[in-house]
Amino acid sequence: MSGFEKLLLLITFAQVALTFGVLFYLGRLRLPLVQAGEVKVADIALHDGNWPEKSQQVSNNFNNQFQLPVLFYAAVAICFAVRFVPGIFLLCAFGFVLSRYVHAYIHCTTNRVYRRFYAYFAGLVLLTIGWIDLVIELMLVL
């Protein structure tokens, strides 16, 4: 495995760790609410809008980890399938995952929408550039 492949693997593990981290945080918020009877299971069985705001906020972030990151994971899978990781893509992948951490932090704490949007948009731009680089590099190399 090349050095770039190892770095991309670490970056990917960081994104997975973020997703699990948000999920465990969500569980830490929600489980006590159900155990204390503050939230009734019947009220949330088919509609998650009955959770308190903070819990819903973190849940929204968890759901968000399956939006743009899906495109990231697809690009990573392509890199490993062809055993080639372009340098620019690697830098964009690192920046993308870093932006996801910033986005998640904002979303799960202050939830300042404009700041959250800037982090999201930065990740979108980096992911787009990464994909463009990947496509061009693969067309030139393969």
Rank of each mutant, 00 (worst) to 15 (best):
T109Y: 04
L68V: 08
N61D: 13
R100W: 02
K40G: 08
T109V: 12
V34H: 14
L8S: 03
N61Y: 06
A81L: 11
Q56W: 10
L142R: 14
A81K: 10
W131M: 15
C79T: 02
R116A: 01
G21M: 09
K6W: 12
L23E: 01
W131H: 13
T110G: 14
Y101M: 08
L142P: 04
R30G: 10
V22G: 05
I78T: 12
N111F: 11
W51K: 03
N60A: 15
L29P: 00
L9I: 10
E137H: 08
V41W: 14
L127T: 01
L124N: 06
L33N: 12
L138N: 03
L7D: 02
L26Y: 04
Q67H: 15
V141S: 00
Q65C: 15
N111H: 13
V34I: 15
K54N: 14
Y25T: 09
M1H: 12
V34N: 09
R30T: 01
L142A: 12
L124K: 08
F62D: 00
F84H: 10
R112K: 12
V102K: 01
S59H: 11
L9A: 08
F80P: 01
I136R: 07
I44C: 04
V16W: 09
F117C: 04
A36Q: 15
E5Q: 13
N63A: 15
L71E: 04
N111R: 07
V70L: 15
V41L: 15
N64F: 13
L9V: 09
A42W: 06
K54M: 07
Y105R: 09
I11S: 06
N63W: 10
H47N: 15
A81M: 09
Y101T: 11
A77L: 14
A104G: 10
I11A: 14
P69F: 00
L71S: 12
D48A: 10
S99M: 00
K6Y: 10
I88M: 13
G21A: 04
R30H: 09
V141E: 05
V85P: 00
Y101V: 09
L46V: 08
C108Y: 06
G123L: 02
A119E: 03
D133K: 06
S59Y: 14
I11D: 08
Y73I: 01
R30D: 07
T128Y: 10
L91H: 05
V85N: 01
F80W: 06
L29T: 12
L8N: 04
F121M: 08
